[in-house]
């Protein structure tokens, strides 16, 4: 037991040995495939209650890992002198666990991209409504992906950065993507204008307070406000620091507590919403 916890504390158990890293990694991936392929028929033969029991157990253990890592004391040097006093025996496993979550996220990105491409391919092949836009999407997707991948390989000196790649990537990234991104964000300014013109009306006491406060802050936070009156920036800062901040604090408390309660319900499988 002492040897095991010492090993876990020293990270040895969470990292593959340097010398045979490729072999161990291959074995782990192959083992995972076999486990999953073997697990699927077992899960299918189980009754729904049995499947739910497995899901509940796995969810609980996964949540328990992170909760235990946070709550367990960190300084175990009194019992294990070789231990690092800044972490407990689960802390070294956090990084690998987060890496696993990121890999799952990357797989999900592949799934999402597959769904998108499939939809638009079908639109194009079956000539559904507005299939021309689907062609545009597919061509843009392929071209941008090709240039981006080549650019990354060129950065790592795996392929040569020729003039076509250089120019092509500059056109696609600097002159197209960046400009389109900025253009879309700039729409927000125009939409704010139309939304403010439509919404800021004296319809009720609350709406009037909202309107006048918004106007005060809008003019107070810009240089023009200071030119009109030195009091305006002071009032605007006061509204932001003394009215906005406490209200926001109150909302953030509620949101934080709500999030924690929801996390507890999910961990203990008390939440029946999505599952």
């Amino acid at each position: 037991m002492v040897v095991l916890t010492n090993l876990m504390a020293q990270q040895t158990i969470w990292r593959l040995p340097e010398e045979s890293r490729v072999l161990f990694a291959t074995l782990i991936v192959a083992g995972a495939f076999v486990l999953i392929l073997g697990l699927i028929p077992v899960l299918q033969t189980l009754p729904p209650r049995g499947r739910r029991a497995i899901v509940v157990t796995v969810t609980f253990l996964a949540g328990l890992f992170f909760a235990a890592e946070f709550f367990l004391p960190v300084d175990w040097t009194a019992i294990f002198p070789k231990d690092d006093p800044k972490r407990n025996f689960l802390t070294p496993a956090i990084q690998p666990a987060q890496n696993v979550l990121q890999i799952i996220g990357a797989l999900a990105l592949g799934l999402g991209t597959f769904g998108l491409v499939r939809l638009h391919l079908r639109n194009a092949v079956q000539r559904r409504a507005q299939w021309g836009y689907s062609i545009v999407l597919l061509v843009s997707f392929v071209v941008m992906a090709a240039f981006s991948i080549l650019n990354t390989l060129a950065e790592k000196k795996i392929v040569e950065r020729g003039p076509v790649l250089e120019r092509g990537f500059a056109i696609l990234f600097d002159h197209t993507l960046i400009q389109l991104d900025a253009a879309m964000f700039s729409l927000v300014a125009f939409y704010i204008f139309s939304a403010a013109y439509r919404a800021f009306r004296i319809r009720s006491v609350e709406a009037s307070i909202l309107m006048f406060t918004a106007m005060l802050v809008m003019i107070g936070v810009v240089p023009l406000g200071a030119q009109i009156s030195p009091a305006l920036p002071t009032i605007a800062n006061w509204v932001l620091a003394q009215l906005n901040a406490p209200a926001q604090r109150a909302i953030e408390f509620g949101v934080g507590i709500g999030g924690l309660a929801m996390a507890i319900r999910l961990w203990l499988s008390l939440e029946r919403g999505v599952t």
Partner: peptide
């Protein structure tokens, strides 16, 4: 923004409720 542009807005922990 939602208050200005939407018909109904649910704020903060009403979302979790």
């Amino acid at each position: 923004f939602f208050v200005a542009a939407c018909d109904y807005t649910i704020i903060g922990d009403e979302f979790y409720a």
